[in-house]
Design a protein around this nucleic acid. Structure first.
Lengths: 339, 339
DNA sequence: CTGAAAGCGCTTACAG
DNA sequence: CTGAAAGCGCTTACAG
């Protein structure tokens, strides 16, 4: 036999029609048990595998999801945020569990989206992941909705369609961070991160943080805030600028772990001791967090659950089942940087 | 129009035949420039995208590669070795560059391989990545070769088919590590890692290391070797057992960074100072390496180049072009753990 | 329970 | 330069 075996080859050797082969392989209850066994036997011998292109074409679905990972255009090409890599891992696992394949693709927010995975029938739906400027994404979300593309986003909600979003309770996480610092008595706090509508996740973390302080009658000073995107480098520079401007604080909340790690570097450089002089709290609980010096207190996002929920919600969307906005509970992990 | 537009819809609106639409969209030189423009115009308006299932079925190829990531069965489900996540990133990028999609899948070495990606025409070829017991994989490699599956492996060579392998020069990397320790005068060295044919990569690293010492007339003591798989936990326990057995050494070469990080934890716990009492050198240069305390000296593997070469070689294999065994040069990164 | 036949949406040899 | 037609390998209504 030249080339791969087809269902006609199986039919020939099993002495049945090709239709019966197709039914037998899909374990249709219509087909006789003995026939079914014979067909499976022959298929195994010929190392036959159903041609996915043909079956997908026929059934008009792909059993494949596509993951689009957006990168902050300003971050280094080679360095992908470890938080998203962890998400990628859990999404891959969740897909496998549901019997779906996963196509992976990196997108830079400037370029055209390769959101044609669904249009070209390569995927039944999309999962969108990434930091970067949210306002840049908004019009693209709208296009996807108009085209009736099935997709689900990690992070901030999409226009008025929260059902398309799975996210961590960033507001609640920010509150946890604040309550921890309040409990340790470190109430003179700096915040590093982009607390604007360009980064809705950071914004929510900041607000939860601020509100928890406010509830204790403490107002955070605007002067002690510095803008940063989610990279070590950016966190380093933002913190340096605070120090350079002689801004004092005895605790620091970073919108992400990478920012926190950069902040710690800047503090060390300025001979400011962590945690003695400044308590530091991050967000994400990336793998590095427990290895830095001192180990980083942080708000953990459950990436395993997040991946599972993204896949589950997307599949519901694809099947036309009702989907709800999903908010995952964060968890405070206390380590040496704040005790 | 209900459902997605097809090439027949485009044909209808552009006033040409469906064959011409197909040619025009593929920018065939056969078709008139004016016709071509009109077809593209209509296609854009209808948001038409070629159905990949149909075109793949017709052309009998998929423009897709599959990445199978094998995990050490003993390692924690949720923790994927960061080195492989970095590889995943670079492979994804390399695929995009070549116009291929990437299917990603995790495999546990115990389960059946989902190596049917190629058989089922979902992918034109496979990339295999992973640590784990090499001897378990051997028979599966053989099956793949028998079935004439196009695949390329990261790491150790496959039977007598080195053309299917892309790897770091592990032997040379081990030598570099040794030469560095020799230069710092720390010649009483321990080795942590599985230096057997179960882990050919670790084996090569160990041998390069040993040979460089031998070249200076120094024989490494077998007593100062401890077995470990590539996890922090395993490195920790292996090092602890050396210490518990009162084995002395003033330097330590770990077969991977994760092992090295575990080793440092064990040393710290035993009040053995790094680097004053023991110099530590790892392998991989994962992102964490520069953040641990002290920062880890290590042998870097170029993951960007590795991903590119894996994809390049696989594409050559698919196209039937000659492929050669590819050995990538490692680079020593000296940090605080050994100076 | 089984088979003959239609058709999913393309690409491409063939004929003009 | 263009069109009519075959066919990639399946799944599934339809008929028996």
């Amino acid at each position: 036999m030249k080339g791969k075996a087809t269902s006609f080859d199986i039919a020939h050797y099993a002495g049945v029609s090709q239709s019966t082969v197709s039914r037998a392989l899909r374990n249709s209850p219509l087909v006789n048990e003995e026939t079914r066994r014979r067909v499976h036997e022959v298929a195994k011998q010929l190392n036959y595998k159903v041609d996915k292109n043909a079956s997908n074409l026929r059934t008009q679905q792909s059993s494949t999801l596509a993951l689009l990972l957006f990168e902050d255009p300003t971050s280094d090409e080679s360095q992908i945020n470890p938080f998203f890599l962890a998400m990628l891992g859990s999404i891959t696992r969740a897909c496998a569990k549901e019997g779906y394949d996963l196509l992976v693709s990196f997108q830079s927010s400037s370029s055209d989206w390769q959101a044609d995975y669904e249009d070209s029938h390569r995927a039944d739906g999309l999962i969108l992941l990434g930091y970067g400027d949210y306002l840049d994404y908004q019009p693209k979300f709208r296009t996807l909705i108009e085209q009736n593309t099935k997709f689900v986003c990690w992070g901030a909600s999409v226009d008025n369609r929260p059902d398309l979003t799975v996210s961590c309770d960033n507001y609640g996480g920010g509150k946890m961070a604040a309550q921890h610092l309040l409990a340790t008595g470190r109430t003179d706090c700096a915040f590093i991160g982009d607390a604007s509508d360009h980064s809705p996740e950071f914004f929510a973390r900041y607000h939860g943080f601020k509100d928890a302080f406010l509830a204790k009658g403490i107002t955070l000073s605007e002067r002690k805030m510095a803008n940063a995107i989610s990279t070590e480098e950016s966190g380093y520079h933002a913190t340096r600028s605070l120090i350079a401007n002689n801004i004092r604080f005895n605790s620091l909340f970073a919108a992400s772990d990478l920012i926190a790690i950069g902040a710690i570097r800047a503090l060390k450089e300025a001979k400011i001791n962590v945690p003695d002089d400044v308590h530091v709290v991050g967000f994400d609980n990336i793998a590095v967090a427990s290895f830095v010096n001192p180990p980083l207190t942080t708000v953990q996002q459950d990436t395993t659950l997040a991946g599972q929920m993204l896949v589950d919600n997307l599949l519901k969307l694809i099947r036309g089942e009702p989907v709800e906005n999903t908010l995952l509970p964060p968890r405070l992990i206390i380590r040496g940087s704040s005790i």
